[in-house]
């Protein structure tokens, strides 16, 4: 009896995982799209310029 319950819980858990994994990650896709568009259109002053002009002290 207990074993059956445990087996059920595990099965349910696993199927939930599968469902979640197949679900389209809308937020992640939006983030990815924004990043790619920024790069292609050069919207962000991209490029390796980590050294911001620091006012000389």
């Amino acid at each position: 009896m207990k074993k059956a319950v445990i087996a059920m819980v595990v099965t349910l858990g696993l199927s939930a995982c599968v469902t979640i994994n197949i679900y389209f990650p809308a937020a992640a896709a939006e983030k990815a799209a924004d990043k790619i568009i920024d790069d292609i259109w050069r919207l962000k002053d991209a490029g390796p310029s980590p050294k911001k002009e620091e006012p000389a002290k």
Partner: peptide, 26 residues
């Protein structure tokens, strides 16, 4: 032991899910 197994499976699922949801590889 069973509870531990379930917990581990759950954790693995969550890790996979979190990874999948976190970012798309571009």
């Amino acid at each position: 032991h069973n509870i531990k197994s379930i917990f581990l499976v759950g954790l693995m699922c969550f890790a996979t899910w979190a990874q999948a949801e976190a970012d798309l590889d571009v």
